[in-house]
Amino acid sequence: MRAVPGRLGGVLEGTLRAVRTVKVNRAEDRMEGRIMTDARAAARYGTRAVRREAPAWTTAWSGTHLAVIATLSVGSGASARAGSRARS
C-alpha cells in the first residue's frame, strides 16, 4: 500500500524534471492521465488508511484515559484511608 503515494511522487518528480521533453514529444495528455490515475489511487489509499487508523487511535487513547482514571481512583482512595486513620 505504501507504493501508491510513492509512485505518485515518482511520476510527479519525473514529469517535472522532464517538462521540456514532455512538451516536445506532446506527451502532456499521457502524463496528465498517469498523474491523475496515481493521484486517485493515492487518495483512495489515504482514505482507507484514515478509516483504519481512527479506531486504533480511539482505542489506544481510551486505554490511556482509563489507566489515568484508575490511577487517580486508587490514589484518592488510599489518601482517604490514610486521612481517616490519622483522625482516629
Results as ranks from 00 to 15, higher is better:
M1C: 06
R2V: 14
R2S: 12
R2K: 13
R7P: 00
G9W: 07
G9D: 07
G9F: 08
G9T: 05
G10V: 10
G10W: 05
L12Q: 05
L12S: 06
L12F: 09
L12M: 08
L12E: 12
L12W: 05
E13H: 02
T15K: 03
L16H: 06
R17I: 10
A18R: 15
A18D: 12
V19R: 11
R20Q: 15
R20T: 14
T21Q: 13
K23Q: 14
V24D: 12
N25G: 12
R26C: 07
R26M: 14
A27F: 02
E28I: 15
D29N: 11
R30T: 15
R30W: 11
M31I: 11
G33A: 06
R34K: 15
R34F: 11
I35D: 05
I35Y: 06
M36R: 13
T37G: 12
D38E: 14
D38H: 13
A39N: 10
R40K: 14
R40D: 11
A43P: 03
R44L: 10
Y45K: 07
G46D: 07
T47I: 10
R48C: 12
A49F: 06
A49Q: 02
R52H: 11
R52Q: 05
A54G: 04
A54H: 03
A54S: 05
P55C: 01
P55I: 01
P55W: 01
P55F: 01
P55K: 00
W57H: 07
T59C: 04
A60N: 06
A60V: 05
W61K: 11
S62T: 03
G63H: 02
T64N: 00
H65S: 02
H65R: 10
H65C: 00
A67E: 10
A67G: 03
V68I: 10
I69F: 05
I69H: 09
I69P: 07
I69Y: 08
A70G: 04
A70I: 11
T71W: 12
T71N: 09
S73Q: 02
S73V: 09
S73D: 00
V74T: 13
V74K: 04
G75A: 12
G75E: 08
S76Q: 14
S76K: 02
G77P: 08
S79Y: 15
A80Q: 07
A80L: 15
A82W: 13
A82V: 13
A82M: 15
G83P: 00
R85D: 09
R85F: 07
S88L: 12
S88G: 11
